[in-house]
C-alpha cells in the first residue's frame, strides 16, 4: 500500500490527462508533455515511476474484447462461508475468470468472465456451475454510462 500523499499535483494532472486520447503521432509523449508544460523526459520518468509504484496498473491500449468477437461478463454466486475456500479455488481455477472479489452480501462472490468468443460465456458458466454445484448469476452489461477516473488536480 502506497501513501496517497506521494502523488503531487503534476502526477494528478498527468493521470487525468493520460486516461484517454493518447495521440497517434510519431512522438506522442512529447505532445502530451507539451500540453502539461513538462519536458518529454520528465513525463516519461513520472509515468515509469507511477507504474513502478503501482499507482497506475497499466499504460497502453485498452481493448474491448467484445468488439473483437469475445465477451466479458460480471457474474456472482451465493456461497456459504464454510464453502468459500473450496468454491473460490474451483472458480479461480478457470482461466476465463479474470477478477474475483469477495463482497459483504448474500451474493458474496463476484467475478468477471472473459472469453474469446460470445459462446464461451454460457459454456464457462455451465462448467463453473457443474464444478461447484452452485448457481451462477450472470449480470451482462446492458448499457455503459461511464468508465474512468477523475482525480482532483
Amino acid at each position: 500500500m502506497h501513501d496517497a500523499a506521494a502523488l503531487d499535483d503534476v502526477d494528478r494532472r498527468l493521470i487525468n490527462a493520460m486516461q484517454g486520447d493518447f495521440p497517434l503521432v510519431a512522438e506522442p509523449y512529447r505532445a502530451v508533455a507539451e500540453m502539461l508544460g513538462l519536458s518529454e523526459t520528465e513525463l516519461l520518468t513520472r509515468l515509469d515511476s507511477l507504474l513502478a509504484r503501482r499507482v497506475l496498473t497499466r499504460f497502453g491500449p485498452m481493448f474491448q474484447i467484445e468488439r473483437a468477437g469475445g465477451a466479458f461478463v460480471l457474474a456472482a454466486m451465493v456461497v456459504a462461508d464454510e464453502d468459500l475456500a473450496r468454491v473460490s479455488d474451483q472458480v479461480n481455477a478457470f482461466p476465463e475468470v479474470a477478477h474475483n472479489y469477495r463482497r459483504e452480501h448474500e451474493f458474496n462472490m463476484w467475478f468477471v468472465l472473459a472469453t474469446a468468443t460470445r459462446e464461451g460465456i454460457p459454456d464457462a458458466i455451465a462448467r463453473i456451475e457443474q464444478a461447484t454445484g452452485l448457481p451462477v448469476f450472470a449480470f451482462p452489461k446492458e448499457r455503459e454510462y461511464f468508465v474512468g477516473m477523475k482525480l482532483r488536480a
Partner: peptide, 23 residues
C-alpha cells in the same frame, strides 16, 4: 490503431489507475 479505435476494439489508449494505491 486508429482503425481499432474507430471500431471500438480499442476503447482508448491511456493509463489505468490503481484505486488502492491512490488511497
Amino acid at each position: 490503431l486508429q482503425r481499432m479505435l474507430d471500431s471500438g476494439v480499442i476503447r482508448r489508449i491511456g493509463a489505468v489507475p490503481n484505486h488502492y494505491a491512490i488511497g
